[in-house]
Design a protein around this nucleic acid. Sequence first.
DNA 1: ACAAAAGTGTTTTAGGTACACCCATGT
DNA 2: ACATGGGTGTACCTAAAACACTTTTGT
Lengths: 241, 241
Amino acid sequence: MSAANTPYAVNHISVDSVIFGYDGRKLMVLLLPEQVRMGREVFRFRKLPGDLILREEDLEEAVHRIVRDLTGIDVLKMIQIKTYGSKGRTSETDMRWLLQNNGVTIDGIVTTSYLSVVKINRQLESLRKKFGFEWTPVQGIEQLAFDHNRLIEDGLALLKNVSDATPEILFDLLPRKFTIPQYRLLCEQVHRRHYDPGNFQKKVLGKMPYVLPLEEFETGTGHRAARYHRFDKTAYKRLRK
Amino acid sequence: MSAANTPYAVNHISVDSVIFGYDGRKLMVLLLPEQVRMGREVFRFRKLPGDLILREEDLEEAVHRIVRDLTGIDVLKMIQIKTYGSKGRTSETDMRWLLQNNGVTIDGIVTTSYLSVVKINRQLESLRKKFGFEWTPVQGIEQLAFDHNRLIEDGLALLKNVSDATPEILFDLLPRKFTIPQYRLLCEQVHRRHYDPGNFQKKVLGKMPYVLPLEEFETGTGHRAARYHRFDKTAYKRLRK
DNA sequence: ACAAAAGTGTTTTAGGTACACCCATGT
DNA sequence: ACATGGGTGTACCTAAAACACTTTTGT
């Protein structure tokens, strides 16, 4: 049904972004609620922020623009996860197949996914209310639109790999002031394993001199209060040179 | 200059494959010689095997087909490296911009690169002669067409990461019979570091029970002959379960 | 005999794990 | 007082590194 005169596939390109957040207890992923009216029925579902890229737009530019438009968030760094061809994919491609260009039917949509992380703070909470996005715990996520569950899995796997090579990314996820147990819980969720609390404490304090103790402690815990720490980016970069 | 009636980019998709080989001494990458006539002048250059994908074709299908067509090689496994947008890329996009579909100018070409490895054996050598591809040492590679130097860099980085998680890939690169020093040299080139020969030997023999010694030795070396070994896939898989 | 690389053995070091135990806080 | 998790100290185990030394081969 394609009207083009070459055998080569003609595609639109879309980008989807897997944005992780951490509320101090659980690793979360950012989702957008959507609804589609089909006659009398209304289907509700949630999806990752994403859209088609525009002419004259590079992939990275596009994902930054789209995330800003859909969530208000100006994400600093995007890491490419993977590209998914149009064949054998779910209804996302079908749904947008209608898009035509001067009678040339698009053969499909190729999707490239990106990983990013954000600190959940007051500013971000106000954006959440304004734009209506939602944080969902990565563990026990529901069935999502399209193949978005897979994108999240692949994104989480990449987050794990990246954080091995570049611990910095996990501190971008933590609040400015955090406790070692909070950091440990985050690591446990990213690496899907358990860490001994005592050993973890010692490793961080002994091997990560860019994690600095503050004179401030948690309150209202029902047990000994944990000390707050902060991530010193300058010391971190100096160490990595 | 685009005649389409939506703001969305319309692209062709191309795939390029970075295929590594190992001759027992040096890590090599497979390149195809090309020449383009521009009036009286003939430009010669080398490039990675790659082409545009066809309608109704998935990315992986396409890269397998293209590699088979261009080199005769039926590669078993392809690992996606990265996708490069069309904007700000070099002349590859320009060169093929001419491709049009019913008056709709394509906005650009998005390229996805794939990593693969092959054993250089007699069968492969005969394919090399038949299809005219060339093996080039990864170290000290010349300036290639388009952004192919970058693709190779990114491919090598991925090979390193993959081989950390899955040592098997390096044995796919080694000949069926190999010596421990050959394996060590390969690891040194992939990981860009030096290994102590004695320690390396012990690590392989002690921690990799799927590397089996043979009753066969190198000859004509000018020094003590190294023992040949082989990779036992069955034992390897059993261990990883 | 000698050079040169294969291969073995020994020692040291660093990092991870297990776990006992003390500390601080809310109920 | 007690439960709960924060945090410290100690012992142990394993893997990696350093390096001395022996073995084998071609010239």
